[in-house]
Design a protein around this nucleic acid. Structure first.
Length: 686
RNA sequence: GGCGAGGUAGCUCAGUUGGUUAGAGCGCAGGAUUCAUAACCCUGAGGCCGAGAGUUCAAAUCUCUCUCUCGCUACCA
């Protein structure tokens, strides 16, 4: 039984930056093509998206720019929404997680799970740092070990005697944040015990079955998705805390949870549901028809995402949906790989990107061109690459030369011979019939491919219509036949126009603007994906020929490439100044020049070096995350600035006493600070 | 470090359960043509299918080792 209705989501963009072409090619454009196609197939579809506006990264960005988090999310929500509109991504709704409705529903969702016992609740007395107004994780507390009297044991463990501890056992506990004595307060944490869900997840992902019933075909899922999920499940899922200590987000809707918000897992994906609710309210629908088991029995839920989001959508969100009980589970999670740009990864921080809003501002009439190119290189099964030279080639030698030129040839000929009036067909030759039956198969081929999420190949099939058309004209040579058999030419051009018609119809999923132009010209108005009979009416006149796609010049390519290299970063690359501190605060820091007398890379760690530093008063071990910038030999013998009196901390099993001070530039590169007068090690800095 | 996914013509990518001369588009070369956006049409040349070993009558496809790329994850105060 073929299901006839769909709820399609596209990953919520995070509202702390604009969209670039990588986002578009790997999520939103494929989803939009799929949805446009489904609508033409007369499926009942809701296409849902919105901006994800919570989380620590946004608060950090707000601090950096010196504004409130709300300002950040308002700015980017608006920018992103407008970009999607101009690029004609046909969401039914583009909502936002900072909305009242979302807050309400996410809270309700949390409460339902809570009532059903989906969480493991842990009440405990936990140390609270009054200065920082936050609860302290175990490792942020040090004190004297009750077993061996070691003075610097951690809240979870004493590495001197190896004892497992809890923070309340420590004698003289100290907060490593403020250095003050923390106070004990009662707090509650809610954990999602994912380990309890391994069995059904395994069956659901590998076999597509739930409680014995097959609900999807796992063969249609991408390798990468099944592979990564099974690797997580086989590795053993762990309980994870569902709350965070943060003041920006959805407050945990339970007592004793001040200062806690719902973690992203219970926030962002619920945004799909709350967005659907808003849309349903606005359009007189029942949102449950799109999400709930009872009401949406035969509905397919599809999540379009990037590959970094696989576990989130194929394991965690399904657990939440199933634990809630009312919901259907995703039928597929088409995950796309990443798009690169001119040989390098897209990078927001390095400004190595083509920003969608800038493209749309400069080239508002080149929407379909960009869609064509991005679909051609959609990263379906592996990372792919965008270059401006390729952009030019694809538009010039494919879109313009094959598609645009074919349409132009047909319309010019009809104007030349019939003053723009559609001629009648007479007797069809076997070649005419062969061509007509060939083009009749194309919508079905595209359809098969799109149901398998193969949008590049599907778009190729659309282009094949133009190729067939060009070949038909070359074979039939109406410009020659007109001299000997003008009646025959009427049939030839009618057939050529039928190819154009089919091309226009198939283009609606991929190149909506172009399709509109063509259908308008041909005076065809159909909401169906395919037509068994042509709707062209002989005697109607078609519009004047226009150039559908202009060629991209070398200057354009050079210009865009040069912009990539020289564009300065939009926001200042210099972080804003931190809060003022008192002189007393400053003098608390003990800074000295140290001499690195031993250095080795820590095993099994990418970024860590274990250093022995002579500080004049002692030789101490410091673990430093600089391995990407200094290998052991390069730092050995160097004089470095050491923060001496930072509370010791165990890093991957090695206790680190103090830290090296490093300069960090906007690229994230590090440089050791060395005194320019070559003072000996051991001197103090003030 | 652990795990997952990739490495196929100059470029962007397909290759279904291992089976005869490894495919497409673009680019390139030659030819034909002029209705058309110096476009279209025909023909052709380009691949040690990342490296090495193994299983098999047969391997791009299965196994192992290595290597490069990307993602997730741990660790970077």
């Amino acid at each position: 039984m073929e299901k006839k209705s769909y709820t399609v989501t596209a990953a919520l963009p995070y509202a702390n930056g604009p969209l670039h072409l990588g986002h578009i090619a790997g999520v939103y454009l494929p989803a939009d093509i799929f949805v446009r196609f489904l609508r033409l197939q007369k499926h009942d579809v809701a296409f849902i998206c919105g901006s994800d506006e919570h989380g620590a990264a946004i608060t950090l960005r707000a601090k950096k720019e010196g504004v409130q988090p709300q300002e950040i999310v308002d700015k980017y929500h608006t920018l992103i929404k407008h970009s999607f509109e101009k690029f004609e991504i046909s969401f039914d709704i583009f909502h936002r997680t900072s909305s009242e409705l979302h807050h309400q529903y996410a809270s309700e969702f949390f409460k339902t799970l809570h009532e059903k016992g989906a969480f493991e609740e842990q009440k405990s007395l936990q140390y609270f740092d009054a200065t920082y107004q936050q609860f302290l994780a175990d490792r942020y507390i040090t004190g004297t070990c009750p077993k061996c009297q070691h003075p610097n044991a951690y809240g979870d463990q004493c590495e001197k005697c190896g004892a497992d501890l809890s923070p309340t056992e420590l004698i003289n506990p100290t907060s490593t944040l403020s250095g003050n004595t923390p106070e004990l307060k009662e707090t509650t944490h809610w954990y999602l015990p994912m380990n309890n869900h391994e069995d059904w997840l395994r069956e659901w992902i590998q076999k597509g079955s739930m409680e014995g019933e097959i609900i999807h075909d796992p063969k249609t899922w991408k390798n990468q998705v099944v592979g990564q999920c099974m690797s997580w499940i086989n590795g053993g899922l762990r309980a994870r805390a569902m709350t965070r200590d943060l003041d920006w987000g959805i407050p945990v809707p339970l007592p004793n949870s001040e200062g806690k918000v719902l973690y992203v897992w219970l926030d962002a994906p619920i945004g799909y549901i709350s967005a659907t609710q808003q849309w349903a309210i606005d359009n007189g629908k029942n949102w449950k028809d799109y999400w709930c088991k009872e009401e949406a029995k035969d509905r397919k839920l599809i999540h379009f995402i990037g590959k970094d989001n696989i576990v989130f959508h194929a394991i965690i969100f399904p657990i939440l949906l199933k634990a809630h009980g009312d919901f259907i589970l995703p039928e597929n999670v088409p995950a796309y790989e990443f798009l690169n740009l001119e040989g390098d990864k897209f990078s927001t921080s390095r400004n190595w990107a083509v920003w969608l809003h800038e493209y749309l501002e400069h080239y508002p009439n080149k929407v379909d061109e960009l869609k064509y190119v991005l679909t051609s290189i959609a990263p379906e099964n592996k990372d792919s690459e965008f270059t401006w030279a390729d952009f030019q080639t694809r538009i010039n030698s494919e879109l313009a030369d094959i598609y645009g030129n074919f349409v132009n040839r047909v319309t010019v000929l009809i104007h030349k011979y019939y003053e723009g009036v559609i001629p009648s067909a007479h007797k069809l030759t076997t070649y005419d019939q062969k061509v007509l039956s060939e083009i009749a198969t194309i919508p079905g081929k595209i359809s098969d491919l799109l149901y398998q999420y193969k949008i590049r190949e599907a778009q190729q099939e659309m282009m094949n219509l133009a190729r067939i058309g060009n070949k038909y004209l070359a074979d039939e040579e109406p410009w020659k036949v007109i001299k000997s058999d003008p009646i025959r030419v009427e049939t030839i051009l009618k057939v050529a126009l039928q190819i154009t018609e089919k091309l226009a119809l198939c283009s609606r999923a991929f190149l909506p603007k172009t399709a509109d132009t063509l259908l308008n010209m041909l005076q065809i108005n159909s909401e169906d994906w395919d037509l068994t009979e042509s709707m062209l009416i002989s005697g109607n006149s078609i519009g004047t020929p226009t150039i559908l796609f202009e060629k991209i010049t070398d200057e354009w390519v050079d210009h865009e490439k040069s912009k990539l290299i020289t564009t300065p970063i939009t926001n200042s690359k210099y972080p804003i100044m931190k809060e003022l501190i008192s002189f007393e605060d400053f003098t608390k820091m003990d800074l000295r020049i140290g001499h690195v007398i031993a250095a080795e890379k820590m095993e099994n760690a990418e970024k860590l070096l274990v250093l022995k530093v002579d500080t004049g008063i002692d030789e101490r071990t410091i673990v430093s995350g600089i391995a990407k910038h200094y290998d052991a030999a390069a730092i050995l013998g160097k004089k470095v600035v050491v923060l001496m009196n930072l509370a010791p901390r165990k890093i991957r099993g090695v206790e680190s006493h103090g830290m090296l001070l490093m300069a960090e530039n906007s690229e994230g590169e590090l440089s050791a600070l060395i005194s320019d007068r070559d003072f000996d090690f051991g001197v103090t800095i003030a």
